[in-house]
Design a protein around this nucleic acid. Sequence first.
DNA 1: ATGCCTCAGCTCCTGAGA
Length: 254
Amino acid sequence: MKLATWNVNSLTVRLPQVLDWLAANPVDVLALQELKLTDDKFPFDALAQAGYQAQCFGQKTYNGVALLSRTPATEVVRNIPGFADDMARVISATIDGIRVIGAYFPNGQEPGSEKFEYKMSWLKGLRDWVRAELVQHPRLVLMGDYNITFDDADVWDPVLLKDTIHCTEEERYQLRALVALGLHDALRLFPQPGKSYSWWDYRDFAFRRNRGLRIDHILVSDALKPSVQSCVIDKTPRKNERPSDHAPVVVTLL
DNA sequence: ATGCCTCAGCTCCTGAGA
């Protein structure tokens, strides 16, 4: 079974690339972030023709998440129960016996800002909910755009970017606390060559120079850890003429 | 360097992203 996550930065613009990618990578589940469209504009038909059912949670202009799957998704939940939020950031469902959570974590803009404080409270809300979800659903995958680096290995220039957004100790503390619930960074279950990133700024030829960050992650629960066969970041779509700034991450379970 | 791209929208500029 293969599950993937991809921040597409506008599904309207990226739909052809999503369809191409699914044709080349027929994963069982694909979590999408930053749809930037409302549910009435969601391309259900095009995805159905490609063999995917979709559960979407859209919003005008910003945010928006979806779960695509080959088999039906049940127990679909939108956003974080118990955490009031105006933004469409989380969608979860049970697919093939696995609890799948797709999430678009807040950006946070700048340490100390109002948006940073929102990011911190959102992270706490997520953690409290995921703790309970793990009790109900031991076989769980939490994947998406976390907007947080684990450590300096996830950062192209840790000195330049020290304590900037995605790299602060407060954010990394929250990420470690989430992992401490009984989750594992799927990519780091395997030896990495280094300089493995999932996002590159559009500006300044950042992709060509591999000036990136690893901020898109797939976390798997204790129960699923033994079945993880591989985890890779697919840089191919980032080479498109008009790419998302993020690359998909794919995990393969036995 | 309060810049550099890209996207959405009350669209020819602005806000937000990361």
